[in-house]
Design a protein around this nucleic acid. Structure first.
Lengths: 190, 190
DNA sequence: TATAGATGTTAACCTATGTTAATAGAATTG
DNA sequence: CAATTCTATTAACATAGGTTAACATCTATA
């Protein structure tokens, strides 16, 4: 329990009762590298809090090429929120880039509790707010910065990134080809 | 009152009491083309619901060049939410591209009510959820589509857009120069 | 209505990034 | 440890989109 409590209190302090309700919908679970936590075309039912490891989200084009849209580090809320919200099948896949430990939450039960438990409604607000702020930053990044600046920004955000995941995943997150990332690195470190 | 009620019930049905609380924090207000509803560097205190007209948000680079990041049409929630949430000065400016009517809401009072009124907490959830879904779509758009496809998508979203705002604003929203948009249009309509 | 400013188009040229393919070293597995 | 597969680099070439500038309309207002 300790772990769940300390993890979630990072977001929003909760009463005992709320924590008990959370307990009833969250389960801690270990995943292996490459395990999917949300698959293409499914209507997801869970959301997650990442305890350790790195998770990515990506979409796939007609030719099967993958585009990583987000990288998640510990304590971030993870999940196909757009699909949880709209109840439509997700086009975004979420999987583990390393072995991971996640808190798995039942979204429907959560929303059920949030209807009457205002602490949980407000915790959900806080999570959505954080996701929102992060997303807005990502939009600025993608539209205002060139690939070199996006690369430097990612390295500031996760300095160990290059030891954690292969370069072609980083390139995909930056929205460039591995070839272009290689050029950028050459230019930077020459 | 009718107007406020019908506008907000588009989002989430509310009890009389909640509507009264909302009434106490919302004011309907008319704005002229070019009026700002959130200015660079200020910590905003209001959020808005657009009743009529078109609002844009934009950021400015070191050289003073403007980048439109979002366009808002009637019934959308508008505001510098990232700054409202983080309480940090906004780098995004919001202004009216046409004469507009907006519901102006006091964010702090709203949050105050939402602490104890679960309907308002849940309405805020719904607003954040919608903003989130819209934002995620925008990220896919900016990173997966080329300028021509983004242009076609915008025209599907707001078919009258070309009669409402000048082409260079459209180009800015699409993240290309007016020159490039002109090329795209030539190519499409030849 | 004459003039200045705002808007859109086009051309010429430049740059960032994509595509493909060859190569080589690193990592994984039989 | 040999063979295979993965990953990163590099080169050659192609393309989308940026920059600048000239020009043509259009619009507003003095």
């Amino acid at each position: 329990m300790k772990n769940l409590i300390s993890t979630l209190n990072e977001f929003y302090p909760l009463s005992k009762e709320s924590l008990e309700q959370l307990n009833s919908i969250f389960v801690e679970k270990k995943y292996k590298k490459k395990d999917k936590i949300a698959s293409f075309g499914e209507v997801p039912t869970n959301f997650f809090v990442l305890k350790s490891g790195i998770v990515r989200s990506y979409v796939t084009d007609e030719k099967g090429k993958e585009f990583i849209r987000a990288l998640y580090v510990p304590l971030r809320a993870v999940g196909a929120f757009s699909s949880l919200i709209t109840k439509k099948p997700t086009e975004t896949v979420y999987d583990c880039l390393t072995d991971c430990t996640l808190l798995v939450g039942d979204f429907k039960k959560y929303k059920q509790f949030a209807k009457t438990n205002i602490e949980l409604a407000n915790l959900y607000n806080v999570i959505l707010e954080r996701l929102f702020v992060r997303m807005e930053k990502r939009i600025f990044e993608l539209s205002l910065l060139d690939a070199k600046q996006r690369y430097l920004k990612l390295k500031r955000y996760i300095p160990e990134i290059e030891t954690l995941i292969p370069q072609y995943h980083i390139a995909s997150y930056l929205n460039v080809t591995p070839v272009q990332l290689s050029r950028i690195r050459k230019e930077l470190y020459k």
